[in-house]
Amino acid sequence: MWWGTLGTIRAYPSFHPEQDVKEIQSALEKKDAVTLVRILTNRTNVQRQVIASTFQEITDKDLSTTLKKVLSGDLQDLLLQLLMLPEHLEAQRLQQAMVGLGTDEETLLEVLCTRSGKRLQEISDAYKQRYKKDLEKELKAETSGDFAKLLVALLKKDNMTAAVHRDVQTLMVSLNGKKADAEPWINILTSREWDHLDKVLLGLELESGQSVEQVVEKQFSGDVRLGLRVLVQCIQGSDVFLAKRLATMKTSLVHGIMVSHSEEDLLRIRTTFLKLTGNSLYSALQNHFKGEHLQALLSICRAED
């Protein structure tokens, strides 16, 4: 953390894209995965974009397409994600969460709850560019009811000021009927700054005598309960939610979270992972993965805690 970021990947100080491309060309010819991993996991996304464009200029070939021909399996997937623009990676994760049979609600919530309104607009634009479809319409088509309203409200996050006490009372009133009214929860939890929401949630706990998660579990059901629970967890600390997701050691989740948070807050997530599981993320990766794929993940993780 001494270099001023909570990410594990920082700008490579002696960056020479032409030299990197030369080494990558040689590695691709020899199918040398070790060199590809060493370079691509030790450059920031901005630097990787420069490498990709330089590779295109020198070879007249697309780097991602060339990697697909040389690599396969989980290592291929991970390195291709590293080469994507951050907003395009998140757009891909959302699309994959909705494609095929069933919907991966937790991945939708992970992206929508942990990203700012500005970032989500960039992701929406990338989604339209990649898939020629409107993300909001896709979310509405794949979900329904209050859960769909929650997802759309998260996608269109807006920050407005409001009195903490008024918000607390509004949420308390929403719980008074035979069935809890989700709409005030959606409106408030997706349209306030998070430091304001921290105070609102604390006030709600004092008023109700229960944790907010307990209130949500008792008062709501189905997908909207899941959505509100994840949103509350992210407001209180997204690193806890993300560390729990990583603890599943599911390959797609490990890739998505580690790549997309590698330059932002993976150090914080690592610390939380250790507190939650009693095991470091570095060691957990060693226990679940192997080969060059493992080495790439360890390089992104960076160190033992």
Score class of each variant (00 low, 15 high):
residue 147 F to Y: 03
residue 147 F to G: 00
residue 147 F to H: 00
residue 147 F to C: 00
residue 147 F to L: 01
residue 148 A to F: 00
residue 148 A to N: 00
residue 148 A to M: 03
residue 148 A to L: 01
residue 148 A to Y: 01
residue 149 K to F: 05
residue 149 K to H: 08
residue 149 K to D: 09
residue 149 K to P: 01
residue 149 K to M: 05
residue 150 L to I: 03
residue 150 L to K: 01
residue 150 L to Q: 01
residue 152 V to S: 02
residue 152 V to E: 02
residue 153 A to G: 11
residue 153 A to W: 02
residue 154 L to Q: 08
residue 154 L to F: 14
residue 154 L to C: 12
residue 154 L to T: 08
residue 154 L to H: 10
residue 154 L to M: 15
residue 155 L to R: 00
residue 155 L to I: 02
residue 155 L to S: 01
residue 155 L to E: 00
residue 155 L to T: 01
residue 156 K to W: 03
residue 156 K to C: 06
residue 156 K to T: 11
residue 156 K to E: 10
residue 157 K to F: 08
residue 157 K to N: 05
residue 157 K to H: 11
residue 157 K to M: 08
residue 157 K to V: 03
residue 158 D to P: 06
residue 158 D to T: 15
residue 158 D to M: 15
residue 158 D to W: 12
residue 159 N to T: 07
residue 159 N to E: 07
residue 159 N to C: 09
residue 159 N to M: 06
residue 159 N to Q: 11
residue 160 M to W: 08
residue 160 M to A: 13
residue 160 M to I: 11
residue 160 M to D: 10
residue 160 M to R: 13
residue 160 M to Q: 12
residue 161 T to P: 11
residue 161 T to N: 15
residue 162 A to V: 07
residue 162 A to K: 11
residue 162 A to R: 10
residue 162 A to D: 09
residue 162 A to Q: 11
residue 162 A to F: 11
residue 162 A to M: 12
residue 163 A to Y: 10
residue 163 A to F: 11
residue 164 V to M: 04
residue 164 V to G: 04
residue 164 V to F: 04
residue 165 H to N: 08
residue 165 H to I: 06
residue 165 H to K: 08
residue 165 H to A: 13
residue 165 H to S: 13
residue 166 R to F: 08
residue 166 R to V: 06
residue 166 R to L: 09
residue 166 R to D: 14
residue 166 R to I: 06
residue 167 D to F: 01
residue 167 D to H: 02
residue 167 D to T: 02
residue 167 D to E: 05
residue 168 V to Y: 01
residue 168 V to G: 03
residue 168 V to C: 03
residue 168 V to N: 01
residue 168 V to L: 04
residue 169 Q to N: 10
residue 169 Q to C: 06
residue 169 Q to K: 10
residue 169 Q to V: 10
residue 170 T to W: 07
residue 170 T to N: 13
residue 170 T to I: 10
residue 171 L to G: 02
residue 171 L to Y: 07
residue 171 L to K: 05
residue 171 L to F: 08
residue 171 L to M: 11
residue 172 M to E: 06
residue 172 M to N: 02
residue 172 M to Y: 05
residue 172 M to L: 07
residue 172 M to P: 02
residue 173 V to C: 12
residue 173 V to I: 14
residue 173 V to R: 13
residue 173 V to T: 15
residue 173 V to M: 14
residue 174 S to H: 15
residue 174 S to V: 15
residue 174 S to P: 11
residue 175 L to Q: 07
residue 175 L to T: 07
residue 175 L to E: 03
residue 175 L to W: 04
residue 176 N to R: 15
residue 176 N to I: 07
residue 176 N to T: 13
residue 176 N to E: 12
residue 177 G to C: 03
residue 177 G to I: 04
residue 177 G to D: 09
residue 177 G to N: 06
residue 177 G to P: 05
residue 179 K to R: 13
residue 179 K to S: 09
residue 179 K to N: 07
residue 179 K to A: 10
residue 180 A to K: 01
residue 181 D to G: 12
residue 181 D to L: 14
residue 181 D to P: 13
residue 181 D to Y: 15
residue 182 A to V: 04
residue 182 A to H: 02
residue 183 E to R: 09
residue 183 E to V: 12
residue 183 E to Q: 13
residue 183 E to C: 10
residue 183 E to M: 11
residue 184 P to S: 10
residue 184 P to I: 09
residue 184 P to Q: 12
residue 184 P to K: 07
residue 184 P to F: 07
residue 184 P to M: 09
residue 184 P to W: 06
residue 184 P to E: 10
